[in-house]
Amino acid sequence: MSRLLAAALAGGLFGAGLLVSGMTDPAKVQGFLDIFGNWDPTLAFVMGGAILPMLAAWRIAARRRISVIDAMPLPERPDPVIDRRLLGGAALFGVGWGLSGLCPGPAMASLGFGGLPVWAFFLAMLVGMAIYGRVKA
């Protein structure tokens, strides 16, 4: 299998999973964050369901050390550095996530049917990414 075929498989399965789980619906995502209102725990089940296979995958990764395709070194564990960049970035992301009920994966997964609102969010997200790239440089 080629890298591109594997990437296509992973992207498609990710998108289908986001749709099936209800996470392409921003109302369900906002409902999870609405703990003082009408709380919707679905996102916790999605996160839990996604973590289960990944627990096994990381165990296999620790034994194998290299990828199946091209025998590339598997991603190393990052230094456990909790700095202002991590905290500030996560904080800003969370505000945008709460206001819109959208994060990058579900936003892209709903581009095909979400119309102008999702496209507006997505294009602004790309601009935000480009701005950070400039600020950092």
Partner: peptide, 17 residues
Amino acid sequence: GGVMIGLAASAFLLLNG
């Protein structure tokens, strides 16, 4: 759906690294 997302992440990790 969550398990599907996790399987996608597992495939991307183990196949493509």
